[in-house]
């Protein structure tokens, strides 16, 4: 089976500063990949460069067997098939919730208004926001805005969903409502790449976890391998730091299968 996403030896940077220094990844159909790593490790840049929101320097990116760095490739066609959810939601503040979801369906996919409406409502139902269709984004809580942003991405029927720290801007209570929605979507079998620091969530949804630092992949494995038996010292330090922040202790990474000595 051909992978949905294949990244080979990718290099990305800003100006003359190289942020991604040779990353290779593969995501199979229906697979959910979680990317973890400290701030500044290049996770966001990697995710953005997958749909060329940041232009890669060199390397290869194949989405659904299409070489998207080929100059002949129409990147807008690819972006229609790949949903992107941002950390800061980035809804359009001057449009209602409904219009936010309908706009790309109407102007990008050129669907008739009624079809776009049906699809938008369906997607908003999936995230539990169908009662808020006539509200404006700034009248909603962060969690609600993020759920609308997820609906906007889902309504386009993506073959791959990229999520860039979808809950980092939310307080703990609002995080859960978004994570619950994402868990539900994950069950439906859509291919996903998720950048997140939520350990429980990562464990629930991930088929594989990639740990990045300083623009390279340090370690890759199943949730069990990465979260409970990390091999690299860097991974352990990171997990210890974020679980201390989360749980208020620093003796272990997780405790389900006995504490890992860190």
């Amino acid at each position: 089976m051909k992978p949905i996403l294949l990244v080979k030896n990718l290099h990305v940077g800003y100006g003359d500063h190289e942020v991604i220094r040779g990353v290779s990844l593969k995501v199979d159909k229906g697979e959910r990949l979680v990317i973890m790593g400290p701030s500044g490790s290049g996770k966001s840049t990697l995710l953005k460069s997958i749909v060329r929101l940041v232009e890669p320097w060199k390397g290869e990116i194949w989405i659904n067997s299409i070489n998207i760095l080929d100059p002949k490739c129409d990147i807008r066609k690819i972006r229609q098939m790949v949903g992107f959810v941002f950390q800061s939601y980035n809804l359009f503040p001057h449009m209602t919730v409904l219009k936010n979801v309908m706009l790309p369906l109407e102007v990008v996919r050129k669907l008739p208004k009624e079809v776009a409406y049906e699809k938008a409502i369906e997607a908003l139902k999936t995230v539990g926001m169908d009662e808020f269709i006539s509200r404006y984004p700034l009248q909603l809580s962060g969690g609600q805005q993020q759920r609308v942003a997820i609906a906007r991405a889902l309504a386009m029927d993506p073959i791959l969903l990229l999520l860039d720290e979808p809950t980092s801007a939310l307080d703990p209570e609002l995080k859960e409502e978004v994570l619950d929605v994402l868990r539900r979507i994950a069950k439906e079998g859509i291919s996903m790449v998720i950048v997140t620091h939520e350990l429980d969530f990562a464990e629930d949804v991930a088929d594989r976890i990639v740990f990045m630092d300083n623009g390279v992949i340090v370690e890759e494995g199943t949730p069990n391998e990465i979260l409970y038996y990390p091999k690299a010292d860097r991974t352990r330090r990171f997990l210890r730091a974020i679980s201390r922040r989360r749980y208020g202790f620093n003796s272990s990474v997780k405790t389900k299968q006995g504490a890992v000595n860190v």
Binding site: L53, R79, F86, N90, F92, L103, V107, V108, R152
Partner: peptide, 21 residues
Amino acid sequence: ETQYLSAESLGMSTLQIYRYV
């Protein structure tokens, strides 16, 4: 900038981004 990024990520053209967003 994030408004442009968000519109781009949905596959909108430059013209559409200016017109609608």
